[in-house]
Design a protein around this nucleic acid. Structure first.
Lengths: 290, 290
DNA sequence: CGATTCATGCAACAAATGTTTCATGGCCGT
DNA sequence: ACGGCCATGAAACATTTGTTGCATGAATCG
């Protein structure tokens, strides 16, 4: 017994549309075109905007096989629900072993991570960068795999603000730094599920001290995001695989550093040039000439 | 003229959360974690699922500056509304300064980096993973901003192969490790333009010692890629901005770790479980229950 | 220890929601 | 042209919604 084609409410609508009375077609098209409003606003509200009778919506729902507008809307709501539980459930299924499967796994992973990046909100990053620009001092925290993100951010920010940026715990036990947070300073905490106690402690200390708290996390409900002045979200679980994905966090960190640098203007530029010159003088780099 | 600090309802919530009464924090967290349901389902419905009083939702809304739950939900609904035909039509156009320009810059950057990921070749990653799987020992190197990539790789590999993975320089000056490379071992070197002398030295030492050399780099002509058994390429300059992009390198590192883990089979799985259990026992993590 | 404030659950309220009924008007077949 | 049919809008309906007042109990301060 095969499933007779997943019945999406929108496809139900589209299929039945041509055989409907004129007025219901109108309303049907309106719903299809404004399905987001259909799930969020009230029937009468939609009717007013569509210039139709509220009853038409009930009739439309019944005409395409639902018990009423409520049920149609519930179906639309479910259909629109954001990806919740791994859309890859079916994927890892038939996996045998062997090279092909691994290649496919990597390709899927990369693709999924690529899809996650444009979903990152740019606005909050810019606002957070402004906060960093204004901060007298910047602390950065991240544990476990997030440590790498923290260190990258630390590295890039120090290129043009060497004296004012510091990793929490860089000069002794982390706890010693917690008491050093001051108002006017910024504290960046990076973390995702499962959250470490240590990172939450840092976030709380920052909040209590009145410092500007910036959280880079996978969820607004992450404990270190509570009370944060800026939350930058990425999708840690967006890719199939065994470890949470950090590409989103890295992308955020680099964007944050880039905008902060941009805000720094010529002063930042000069500092960066100085740093580069120093590294070159120490012949850190291989000369570009082959 | 100036944008008066975009006031997102979720950030309103987050900021006010810590100073709220206990019960309101509870429902506040619930709302933050289920913001989609918050916009689509009814207050009483949510209350039932959250195990709270309906009145708490009204009180929460008022506590964070809204006239009532209706207004809060309306704000949430607007915030969630899908891409409104991009408010930045002529994005990278003639804009010079201002917040708009920064937002556009970040969005462009993210988009460009997303475009770069699918261009990464999966096949070489799988082959390199197989080399790692066969290696008796794994060394990892990266300097400057690549250090973060190296540390991430080190961290993830050590989750299931703790005794066999080591950062070059982890136990003393880097140079001391160079003489320790042996055939049958693998050395991973990460770097991009401008290339550091140190990373090239590690690569050459690995090659001379007969170890398997894996290079993660931005070009086939990178000096550390010379003589490498596996070269994994990413696009460091793919995005506009001031620092080279590391998302590609991170994505490669994570894929590499994932496939290596996959090759490790049940043994690797068991090791990972042990590690996780140990971390849990040390109560590193915040318990998942809200 | 007593007075007070405040958080919290319950119950009643008015407003708004989706549905149904009814009257109207256009359409087609005969 | 007439009668039946159905689409359509307006109004009445029961239900559900968000809100508010009140009583209770815990915590706070004098």
């Amino acid at each position: 017994m095969a499933v007779p084609a997943k019945s999406s409410p929108l496809s139900d609508l589209r299929i039945a549309l041509p055989s409907l009375p004129l007025r219901l077609q109108e309303v049907g098209r309106f719903v299809a075109a404004n399905d987001y409003d259909a799930t969020t606003r009230s029937m009468r509200d939609l009717a007013a905007e569509a210039g139709a009778d509220p009853a038409a919506f009930t009739r439309l729902a019944k005409a395409i096989g639902y018990s009423g507008w409520d049920e149609l809307r519930a179906a639309l709501t479910e259909a629109r629900r954001p990806s919740q539980t791994s859309p890859f459930s079916g994927r890892a299924k038939g996996r045998r072993h062997g090279p092909q499967a691994d290649v496919a796994l990597v390709a899927d992973k990369l693709e999924a991570e690529a899809a996650g990046l444009p979903r990152i909100a740019a606005q909050p990053i810019v606002e957070a960068a402004r906060a960093l620009h204004d901060a007298k001092r910047i602390w950065i925290t991240g544990y476990r795999s997030c440590r790498s993100v923290a260190e990258l951010l630390n590295y890039e920010l120090r290129l043009f603000r060497p004296e004012q940026v510091q990793l929490v715990g860089a000069s002794g036990p982390d706890d010693l730094d917690l008491g050093a947070f001051r108002p006017g300073e910024a504290v960046i905490v990076i973390g995702f599920l499962p959250y470490t106690h240590a990172s939450v402690r840092v976030a709380q200390a920052a909040h209590r001290a009145g410092a500007t708290l910036i959280a880079i996390a996978d969820s607004l409900s992450a404990p270190m995001a509570e009370g944060a002045d800026h939350v930058l979200l990425f999708e840690a679980a967006s890719s199939p695989g065994f470890f949470p994905s950090l590409t989103g966090a890295i992308a955020i960190a680099q964007s944050l550093a880039a905008v902060t640098f941009s805000l720094g203007g010529t002063a930042a530029k000069k500092r960066l040039e100085n740093t580069e010159a120093r590294l070159a003088a120490a012949s850190t780099y291989v000369s570009e000439k082959g």
